[in-house]
């Protein structure tokens, strides 16, 4: 058998197999599973590109735009552009303030979102929506997945005396 000083073949082979297995499992999964974040502005700037690519986009939900058709089970709502840079968000006064500004500022870029399924319970005005999907040729974003970030307002909220 092997003694201390001979080349540890068994270990090397084992390590190579393990690394290869990891590579085979991780790399293709990353390619198919990784999603890039974009803002509404970035999406609208290059519509052709984002019709091909599945992306994650974040925006502030405009509550009054939420429309749901129970017959066809289709959901439509509009999101307003929010800055991706956390420093800018902080400068605007925090997440809650940033979302509020996005919704109330008429000059912000807006995007119409279409999805199937009934409105999630958290889908409300001034909530941050993180959507996964593609831009359709009609300019409407087809969302496959909707993630709504729990409003942090109850953390920041000041009590009434």
């Amino acid at each position: 058998m092997s003694d201390n000083r001979s080349f540890p073949w068994k270990m090397v082979v084992g390590v190579v197999i393990i690394l290869a297995a990891l590579g085979i499992l991780i790399v293709p999964s990353l390619q198919s599973g990784a999603q890039y974040y974009v803002t509404v502005d970035e999406l609208l700037a290059e519509p052709a590109r984002f019709q091909q690519e599945t992306v994650r986009i974040s925006g502030a939900v405009i509550g009054e735009s939420i429309v749901w058709d129970p017959e066809t089970d289709e959901l439509l709502f509009i999101i307003a552009s929010v800055p991706a840079d956390l420093d800018i968000v902080a400068a605007q006064g925090g997440f809650q303030a940033s979302l509020h500004q996005a919704v109330t500022d008429p000059s912000r870029a807006r995007l119409t979102v279409h999805a199937y399924g009934s409105p999630p319970e958290l889908l409300q005005d001034e909530v941050q929506a993180i959507l996964t999907g593609r831009l359709g040729v009609d300019g409407i974003f087809q969302a496959e997945d909707i993630l709504l970030k729990c409003p942090s307002r109850y953390q920041e909220e000041q009590p009434l005396g």
Binding site: P28, S32, G33, A34, Q35, Y36, Y37
Partner: peptide, 16 residues
């Protein structure tokens, strides 16, 4: 670019 992995990555990579 800002990115993230979705459930698809985990399912595909861990399944086997």
């Amino acid at each position: 670019r800002a990115m993230i992995v979705g459930p698809a990555y985990y399912r595909q990579a861990t399944g086997p």
